[in-house]
Design a protein around this nucleic acid. Structure first.
Length: 127
DNA sequence: CGGTTGACTCGCG
DNA sequence: TCGCGAGCCAACC
């Protein structure tokens, strides 16, 4: 498989991740695995974090709404944990020692998002 | 070109 | 329940 094709795919994955994350409404959260799945790469949860790391500077990406599968904050490792928790609380999300209750704040993509991702509407929207 | 790394997950004890 | 270890997938080095 050509090298540039691999890059191309990697870029698309990142764009899709951003598209999906931006679709998450305030006050709700999604897991890395969930985003990876929606982005078309089941099992690539770790890459979601890597993708967001670069987009963290971009102010229109609500990266704070992405948490791990157990409802915990994963950004403590990169020193952004306190900030993420603060941002989430401002949106009305309860974050305690046990983390976040996904049954309560977990978000499931609606039809529009699913369609946008499915129809590959990424290029226009993501940039 | 092969080892390392990491904003992850899941299964098992 | 709660760690812990072993997969996972690319980007990086």
């Amino acid at each position: 498989m050509p090298n540039d094709e691999r890059e191309e795919r990697g870029r698309r994955f990142r764009d899709r991740v951003l598209l999906i994350v931006r679709a998450v409404p305030a006050g709700r959260v999604v897991t890395y695995g969930q985003v990876a799945l929606l982005a078309g790469s089941p099992g690539a949860a770790r890459r979601v974090g890597a993708a967001l790391r670069g987009a963290a500077e971009s102010d229109d990406v609500p990266w704070q709404r992405v948490v791990n599968a157990s409802g915990g904050i994963s950004t403590h490792k990169i020193g952004a944990g306190a900030l993420q928790e603060a941002l989430l609380r401002l949106e009305g999300v309860t974050v305690d020692a046990s983390g976040i209750d996904l049954r309560r704040y977990g978000w499931t993509p609606d039809g529009d998002v699913l369609e946008a991702v499915a129809t590959d509407e990424v290029a226009d929207d993501a940039l």
